[in-house]
């Protein structure tokens, strides 16, 4: 028997919607686990990604921590896949990109109505700092495959993964390739 394919997943600046879609593969998920082992993923609690065949990345890159994790995945995964609109083009979070981050922080923490008096921009070293702009992951690391969609339909993920595992170049036909 062929050894199982090892997959790691993570959500950067994403909403877990893509992970939900992955879980939506439903019954077929059982077939999937015959073929794959999951390394670090929000669906288990492995803390650090180890050497993997495939890394599935949900979400764009909006802070320093996202960058560290993304690079870690790139280092450990033979194949890196951008899953979902946010990983592919920044998605909703990137719609702040035409604004200056400084103005946003000021507005959110200092000038918007309803804030407690003396509100300040948090400077806790535990919190990851936001980047000047939100980036899709291919602007930070080399990405091998893209599965667009918000979220990608479960069928698209299934088709993609089964193609990949079977050693075929993944192809998403009409109805499976979606940007929305």
């Amino acid at each position: 028997m062929k050894s199982k394919v090892k997959i790691a997943t993570t959500s950067l600046a994403g909403c877990f919607g893509c992970h939900m879609s992955l879980l939506d593969i439903d019954l077929r998920l059982l077939d999937l686990v015959q073929l794959v082992d999951f390394d670090r993923s929000p669906i288990n609690d492995i803390k650090r990604v180890g050497a993997c065949d495939v890394g599935l990345i949900e979400g764009g890159v909006c802070n320093a921590e996202n960058i560290e994790i993304l690079r870690d995945y790139r280092k450990h995964c033979k194949i890196l896949v951008a899953v979902g609109a946010c990983a592919v083009n920044g998605g909703l979070p990137a719609q702040r990109n035409h604004l200056d981050l400084r103005d946003i922080l000021e507005e959110v923490y200092q000038t918007s109505p309803g804030l407690a008096p003396g509100s300040a921009i948090p400077n806790d070293p535990e919190l990851p700092l936001p980047l000047n702009k939100v980036h899709p992951i291919h602007e930070i690391v080399r990405v091998d495959y893209f599965v667009p969609g918000c979220p990608p339909p479960a069928d698209a993920l299934w088709k993609f993964l089964t193609d990949l595992i079977a050693g075929r170049t993944p192809v998403l036909g009409h109805g499976l390739l979606h940007y929305d």
Partner: peptide, 11 residues
């Protein structure tokens, strides 16, 4: 890419 956040948080 972190310069604006550093400026605003003083970190």
């Amino acid at each position: 890419a972190l310069s604006q956040a550093r400026q605003m948080t003083g970190r």
